[in-house]
């Protein structure tokens, strides 16, 4: 987005204009244009129209109105979410990459939904019965790359992401004799806020599986397996046991999987660092940041940061990160 040269509004105001234009107005205009085109086709469409396709043709039907309204409704909800979520900006008034992702995703969602909905109706024009509707796999496949390319353009129009990474503070080994051995252990877990969000999400997933079990038990197995694995992983990664001794750093989630170990000879340096989960890692759990860091991100604040000999950095948020870093520095003799 080019701004007039005389525009001297503060950065946050300019960013908010971009959020509104790219994240809300453009997605809504796209979905409204698609809705308008689809509305023009209504006289030529069967009633009801096919709205869901199985492996052997259409297997779900609904009114034209709901096919037209759904992309509008979803885009409206997500655009509002993106605008609210990114409104505050980063701590220095810039846009965090997590905010940019939400704004670009709003564009992606509006285009992929609109193209899929319009495409599914386009193939049904002139049909008397929706049961004869041809497959739309090709349209769905085409919709995602188109939406992705436009979303990338949207991303490029947004300002560079604000870097809020704090400077790591190198840890000193614990003073003592060279023959001393140390053992550090601690438990680190998510805060109450994250716990509530996870509980709500898991409840929703459980309800969705329950509905599937009642309405379509034949196709339950795959969603049930995936759903239960996701639930188990989500619950397991809420709490981690951190152990540091002569064998290095070991992090183990509540159920024992996932887990990770870094041996002392793989450690180049140990430090403590302040971490902002949303701003730097885009959320909570076992995370990868765009700057190449990965780690266990459970809370805002202090974290242990280990730089491996191959340059990769691993972090673990914990309340006693300082002590952990000193213990690990002792073990790694760094």
């Amino acid at each position: 987005m080019t701004l007039p040269a005389e525009n001297v509004a503060p950065q946050l105001t300019r960013n908010r204009r971009l959020i509104i234009v790219i994240g809300v107005v453009i997605p809504l205009l796209i979905t409204m244009a698609a809705a308008f085109v689809m509305a023009l086709w209504v006289p030529e469409l069967p009633n009801p129209v096919a709205s869901h396709w199985g492996t052997s043709g259409p297997d779900g039907y609904s009114t034209v109105g709901s096919v037209i309204a759904l992309p509008l409704l979803l885009t409206l909800v997500f655009a509002a979410l993106a605008a609210f979520g990114s409104w505050k900006g980063g701590p220095n008034g810039g846009m965090l990459w997590a905010h940019k992702i939400m704004v670009a995703a709003s564009v992606f969602l509006s285009i992929s939904l609109s193209v899929t909905a319009a495409g599914s109706l386009a193939v049904q024009r002139g049909l008397d019965n929706a049961e004869n509707a041809p497959a739309i796999g090709g349209i769905a496949l085409a919709a995602f790359p188109i939406a992705f390319v436009v979303a990338v353009f949207a991303w490029l129009m947004l300002p560079a992401s604000e870097r809020i990474q704090s400077t790591p503070v190198a840890a000193k080994p614990i003073a003592g004799t060279t023959t001393q051995r140390v053992h550090f252990s601690s438990t680190t877990r998510v805060g109450a806020g994250v716990l509530v969000v996870v509980a709500v999400a898991l409840l929703a997933l459980g309800i969705a599986l329950g509905v599937q079990a009642v309405s379509n038990p034949a196709e339950l197995l795959l969603p049930a397996v995936i759903g239960l694995v996701v639930m188990a992983l989500a619950v397991s990664t809420l709490s981690w046991r951190v152990t540091i001794d002569q064998r290095g750093l070991k992090v183990r989630s509540a159920f024992g999987f996932p887990r990770a170990t870094i041996a002392p000879d793989q450690i180049a340096s140990v430090a403590t660092v302040e971490v902002n989960p949303i701003g730097e890692f885009g959320g909570y759990g076992w995370r990868w940041a765009p700057d190449g860091r990965s780690g266990i991100v459970l809370s805002k604040g202090e974290a242990l940061e280990v730089t491996r000999t191959n340059g990769k950095r691993f972090i673990v948020t914990m309340h006693d990160a300082q002590l952990a870093a000193e213990a690990l520095a002792t073990v790694a003799k760094k």
Partner: peptide, 10 residues
Amino acid sequence: MLVRVDPASE
């Protein structure tokens, strides 16, 4: 929690 021991100590 940090535990330290020195096997060389008396």
